[in-house]
């Protein structure tokens, strides 16, 4: 059988190559002429705003104010009646949940719960109760390691979710609480990732250990543990390179990094998966893979200040029991807050 597959691909490819070559041959005779392009392709450029508009100050950091934008259809939930549920009510609820990225499977499950339980106090409160029931996991964070060991927080996630920024914010939080923090620049892959973390270290007054690009991330964390021990630091925040969750090699590398970080004197007390609130259903498979590879203990939901609602964490908590622990709502140091399920559910439905 093996040979058959190899050959099948070979035949198809070979035949294709022959065909393509045959087709291209006459074309080569004509000289290559570059097509001219109209100078401006985009004719209707939006009007340039005046400076007055751009001077609008951004609102202060609070979840409610940041979540205020574009809530249009979600108002419909509140307008739904109480008592028995009609199919129309359920459709509205379904739409709201789907639009929040809760996902089809979880939405269907929630709707089933609604159907069986009914809505004695109105649809809005019934769905709120069902959602709240999804957030039952323990959300406490562990900051101290066992006696004689150094606590390590390991940050994992796919590319571009805000791992480095989250570490920066948490470092600032910890140092202002009087802790001595060492940052480990474990993202040795992305260009200038360590520089980015170094700037955060400077801002927050934390120590940083970094290595050249392409260095072994495990060794960076190992060195950071050494530094932390030498200086009597309280906690090490370890960055890792963003990685896709469907690559065995990259997940194996992550598992190895975690093992190194967990070796004496280190102890991984939290492995936080950073998740972008705009992420759709893929977040669930990210959580599954990272849970298996690095024993994730919590989620940091970032970029919740945009129009995205991050409803996928409902599915993650229900299916994998990974609690959301922090929420990122902006780019400044203070824009990282503890996750509050009630406020989050309200924002999903408000």
């Amino acid at each position: 059988m093996t040979l058959f597959w190899v050959l099948l691909v070979a035949v198809i490819v070979g035949a294709g190559v022959v065909a393509v070559r045959r087709r291209r041959r006459p074309r080569l005779a004509t000289p290559l002429v570059r097509q001219a392009m109209p100078e401006v392709l985009v004719t209707e450029v939006a009007p340039i705003p005046t400076l007055l508009e751009s001077a609008v100050a951004s609102a202060p950091a609070s979840l409610e104010s940041r979540l205020g934008a574009s809530r249009g259809i979600f108002d419909r939930v509140r307008s739904l009646g109480s008592g028995t549920l009609s199919e129309t009510d359920l459709e509205v609820v379904e739409e709201v949940l789907l639009r929040s990225d809760v996902g089809l499977a979880t939405t269907t499950a929630l709707l089933d719960e609604l159907r069986t339980n009914g809505a004695p106090d109105g649809v809005a409160s019934a769905i709120r109760a069902a959602l709240n029931a999804s957030f039952v996991a323990d959300r406490s964070v562990r900051t101290a390691a066992d006696e004689g060991r150094i606590a390590v927080w390991l940050f994992v996630g796919v590319n571009g979710v805000g791992k480095t920024t989250t570490i920066g914010k948490l470092a600032a939080r910890a140092t202002s609480a009087g802790q001595h923090v060492v940052l480990a620049a474990g993202d040795t892959f992305r260009a200038a990732a360590a520089d980015q973390l170094a700037l955060w270290a400077e801002r927050s007054g934390a120590d940083i250990v970094r290595a050249a690009e392409g260095a072994d991330p495990g060794s960076v964390i190992h060195d950071a543990l050494g530094r932390a021990q030498a200086r009597g630091a309280d906690i090490v925040l370890a960055d890792t390179a963003g990685r896709r969750a469907n690559s065995t090699n990259l997940l194996d590398e992550l598992a190895k990094i975690r093992r190194v970080a967990d070796r004496l004197p280190g102890q991984v007390v939290e492995t936080l998966m950073v998740l972008d609130a705009t992420t759709g259903q893929n977040a669930l498979s990210q959580a599954k893979e990272f849970l298996a590879a690095a024993a994730v203990t919590g989620i940091v939901l970032t970029k919740l200040d945009g129009t995205a609602r991050g409803g996928i964490v409902v599915a993650i908590e229900r299916e994998l029991q990974i609690p959301v622990k922090f929420v990122g709502i902006g780019e400044t140091v203070d824009d990282l807050i503890d996750f509050d399920p009630t406020a989050f559910v309200d924002s999903l439905l408000s």
Binding site: S70, L98, R99, S100, D101, V158, G160, D276, A277, T278, T279, G280, Q281, N282, A283, G306, T307, A308, R309, I312
Partner: peptide, 10 residues
């Protein structure tokens, strides 16, 4: 980003 959810339209 290809992993974006419903927010892609906004």
């Amino acid at each position: 980003d290809a992993v974006t959810g419903q927010d892609a339209v906004h």
